[in-house]
């Protein structure tokens, strides 16, 4: 720090101002890495917040659809108005995760009690095999509020897109193949707006407690 003032004496004039500036930087030279780290952290944090809060900016997930229920009737998104509902995508031939999630979802609804005004949609990603009748047989093991939906690809695919569902058939012949797909359970509010991804893999009473807040 005294170095600067010695230099200033030797070189007056133009350099004097430069050294004065250097003097000002004295303490900040040591603090420079810290400031840089701090700046980087702030930048990263801002990027993280901006990136992660995007999906929470609602209305991004969900949208209109017209599909066929497991009872054979037509069903649109408008029919869920006035009650919160859960949306889940899967298929009846799914080897493991689908039915486990569906079972958990069903138990959460059961824990809410039979009179709770809440809906649930099980949308197939395998309409070739999941006919209304297949869905009906399958869903008879679960809570009666769960509505199975199927339909032709031109009706189903836009809904998968609206809910950002990835679904891809894995190799296999026509009767024995799998469908890789996103297994998120979505919670939608009474207005049909996306609330959050819903965690069903916990005790049904706990899941029910959270659902009750949206009734």
């Amino acid at each position: 720090m005294s170095n600067g003032s010695i230099k200033a004496k030797r070189t007056p004039g133009r350099n004097a101002r430069k050294n004065a500036a250097n003097n000002g930087k004295g303490p900040s030279i040591a603090a420079k890495p810290l400031i840089a780290i701090g700046f980087c952290c702030a930048l990263l944090f801002t990027a993280f917040v901006a990136f992660t809060s995007k999906p929470a900016a609602t209305a991004d997930i969900g949208g209109p659809f017209t599909l066929t229920t497991h009872n054979g009737g037509s069903y649109t998104n408008a029919e869920m108005r006035g009650r919160p509902y859960l949306v889940f995508f899967g298929y009846t031939h799914c080897p493991d995760i689908c039915h486990t999630t569906l079972f958990e979802l069903s138990e959460a609804l059961r824990a809410l009690g039979p009179d709770a005004n809440i809906g649930a949609l099980f949308v197939t990603v395998d309409p070739e095999r999941d006919t209304p009748q297949t869905l009906k047989d399958y869903l008879s093991s679960f809570d009666p509020r769960i509505i199975g939906l199927t339909g032709p690809h031109d009706a189903l695919d836009p809904m998968l897109k609206e809910y950002r569902i990835y679904a891809k058939r894995t190799p296999g012949d026509n009767s024995d193949y799998g469908v890789d797909h996103t297994s998120i359970v979505y919670l939608m509010d009474k207005e049909g707006k996306f609330v959050s991804a819903f965690n069903v893999s916990r005790k049904p009473i706990e899941a029910a407690r959270e659902l009750r807040r949206y009734l």
Binding site: D96, H99, T100, F103, E104, P204
Partner: peptide
């Protein structure tokens, strides 16, 4: 009652059936 399933789901490493 479903207790076995959820008990193992919470504490028994049950992922699916």
């Amino acid at each position: 009652k479903g207790d076995v399933f959820f008990g193992l789901r919470q504490n028994g490493g049950l992922l699916g059936l």
